[in-house]
Amino acid sequence: MMADIVSVERAEAPWWSSAGTIPGLPPIMACIGLLALWEVVARWYGLNGLPPASAALPQIPEILTDKESLIDIADSLRRMVTGFALALIFAVPAGLAMGRSKHVAAFFNPLLMVIYPVPKAALMPIIMLWLGVGDASKTLVIFLGVTLPLIYHSYQGSRAVEEKLLWSAAAMGLSAPARLIRIVLPAALPEILVGCRTGLVLALITMVTSEMIARQTGIGNIIFVSLDLGVYDRVYAMIVIIGALGFILDVIFESMRGRLVAWAEPSQAIVVGTT
């Protein structure tokens, strides 16, 4: 059952990050192609509410120099980072413990099964009743969105740790808790980082959707206020900014991941690359 979960989440990972492409050129070509298509479709069909790229893109520098919207974007990012960090603190230890103890796994597994199919953003109205429309509920939703892939991958990574590594460490005198931190954690790190990458994308998605429902500040707020006002140029400019944000975060994360687990066997690296 859990295996299905991961395949769904892996499918959601961004297509542009697949390994093996020449860095730089193909993504740029793809972007140009997409922009051209957008321009052509918008001009030929003249859909109501779809401005051509040439009208939307000039809005981007305007948004990025406007103090109000910068504050909104910073608010969003702050919630995203907080939610992600909290998920990291909770999910990694929980997942590692699940992988090493049948009892812990038996406790968490049913819980995860129940939470998994629930769209996290759909919980937003309920959570707002408890925590209000402010930061707390949005951060909680991001936390929930990131926790699942992270806990799952930590669990898998921890379960796959070779028994003899733990035995070797035990013979050197490492206690069980020390083995969890000094053997299981590093051995599972490649897999944990796969979870982090999926989690990063999900954090971005839940961040925007949470702001869609509880409008107040943030990137989602800019989009939907502009939509209400009929300023479609701005809506599309904002969508492009979100896409670019996701891309930049992924590139930064991947270069960091590459350095952290350079020691890993190539087989593990391929699993990561072929999301």
Partner: peptide, 9 residues
């Protein structure tokens, strides 16, 4: 061990 069991990191 027969499988070496080196710490890969």
């Amino acid at each position: 061990f027969q499988e070496f069991a080196l710490f890969p990191w």
